[in-house]
Design a protein around this nucleic acid. Structure first.
Lengths: 133, 133, 133, 133
DNA sequence: TTTT
DNA sequence: TTTT
C-alpha cells in the first residue's frame, strides 16, 4: 500500500517530454494548501507530480496552470546524480489518475491551437525509463 | 486534501528528539515495497516519516527496526539550508496516526529498560519548530 | 484503518437534526459518479453521509443540493429496527472533514436568511447518540 | 474519486461463486475495529467485501477466517429485491486490491487439498453480472 | 521558482 | 427518491 491523494492547483503548465523509446512523461508541481478548508492563507506545499504515457498526454492536452485537480497516485523516491556529482534523492508523486475539479475555458481560438494538442510538442529524446527532468 | 497511506517496515529504529520548547519529534524511514502483493522482490521506496508530540513518543516507545506498520499522514515539502549553504527541499510524510500491523516481542528483560521508555532519552534542545535532523 | 474518500455532488440539501443532548447531526446523500473522469454517464452511487456537531452545522450552513464536495471519513455499519420489527443494517460514511470543491453563489438576499443559518432550524429532540433518521 | 481503504480481519472464509458467464466473485465480511490503535475493545464494523475474477480466485485460494488484510476498493450501493418483494439497498466495498498483512500457516496436509484450490469449487451458475448472494 |  |  502506497497511496497518495492530493487536491490542489497546478503551479505551472505541465511539461511533457518523451523517453528514448517514445513514452510520454508529464511533470508539474501541485500547490496543495496546508489548511485545506481554509480560504485566506497562502501557505502551500509544492509537490512534484509525474504522469506517464496516456495520462501524460491527457495532462499536456487538458491541464493548465492554476487549474484545480485531484491527483491519485503513489509516492516514489528517486535517486539521481546532481551537477556537483553527488547522489541526491527526490520525492515525487507518480499519478495513477487525475480528476479535473474545474472545467477550463476553451483556449482562445478553438479548432486551432493553444497547447491542447500533445502532438504539437517536439519529441525530445531521453534514455528509456530515465525521467527527463 | 493531502493524504498519504503507506504500509511498510521501519528501516531503522525511530530517532526521538526534542524542540527547544520540549515538543517530541520522531523520525525514521519506512521501506515500502513497490509491488505490494508481490513476495520475492527487494525493491522499495525508503520514505522519511516524521511524527510529533504524543505520537512521537509512542513511536519511540513501541516501534523498532523491521516492524510492519501502516502510516496515515500528509506529504510535506520542507526547505532547509544544506551544508554547502544551498537551500534544498526534502519531502517527508508527517504521520497523523500509525497502526501496528505486527505485535512485537517484549524486549529481553521486561520491567526494565530496553529503548521502550521515552523518558530514558536525554532531551536534546533544538530551536522551536525547527525539525532537529 | 477505516478510510473513505469520495468526490461527488449532494443529491439533496443536508438535513440537520439534533440529539436529545443537543448534538447536531447532518445527513445527505452524495451522488458519486462511477467512472469519474468520464462526462456523459448518468450512473452514480448514492452514498449516505453523516456529519456530527460542528461539522454538521457547517454542512447545514454551507452546503446545498448539487454542490460538489470531497468527503473524507470512515465507513460505518449501523443497525436499526425497521418498521416491520426486523433488525436491518445500513452503511453510511461518517464524515471527518468535507472540502468544498465549488464556490456557491450567495443565497438570494444575503444579510438575511436563506437556509444558511443553522439556528433557524427547530431543535427536534432525539435520544442521545441515536442518529435521528 | 471513490476510494475505500480498510484494515481488518475476515469474519468468515470467503465464499466464491460464479456468474452464468463464468466470472468468479468472492464475498466475505471484514471486521474492522473502530478504534484501531486500541487494543482492548471488541467493537467492530462488519463490512461486506466483494472481489471479482482473478482477485476473487486469489481470495478463495489464500484467505481464511481471522486473517488480517488491507482492502483497497470502492464503495458501491447495490439494489436488490428482498424476499418480501421490497426493493432494498445494500452497500459493499468492491475490492480493487487486497494486501495480506499476515502470513498464514499452510493447511494441514499441504500438497493436498484444503480449500486452497479454487478449481475444487463447483461452478454454480448465476445470471451474468448479478452478484450471486 | 511557483497555485487560487 | 436523488447530483452535474
Amino acid at each position: 500500500m502506497n497511496k497518495v491523494i492530493l487536491v490542489g492547483r497546478l503551479a505551472q503548465d505541465p511539461e511533457v517530454r518523451y523517453t528514448q523509446s517514445g513514452k510520454a512523461v508529464a511533470s508539474f508541481n501541485l500547490a496543495v494548501n496546508r489548511f485545506s478548508s481554509g480560504q485566506g492563507q497562502n501557505n502551500a506545499d509544492f509537490i512534484p507530480i509525474v504522469a506517464w504515457e496516456k495520462l501524460a498526454e491527457t495532462c499536456g492536452n487538458n491541464l493548465t496552470k492554476g487549474q484545480k485537480v485531484l491527483v491519485d497516485g503513489r509516492l516514489q523516491i528517486r535517486s539521481y546524480e546532481a551537477n556537483d556529482g553527488q547522489k541526491r534523492r527526490v520525492a515525487e508523486v507518480v499519478a495513477q489518475s487525475i480528476e479535473f475539479l474545474e472545467r477550463r475555458q476553451a483556449p482562445a481560438s478553438s479548432g486551432d491551437a493553444g497547447n491542447t494538442d500533445i502532438n504539437s510538442f517536439g519529441k525530445d529524446v531521453y534514455p528509456e525509463e530515465e525521467i527527463p527532468f
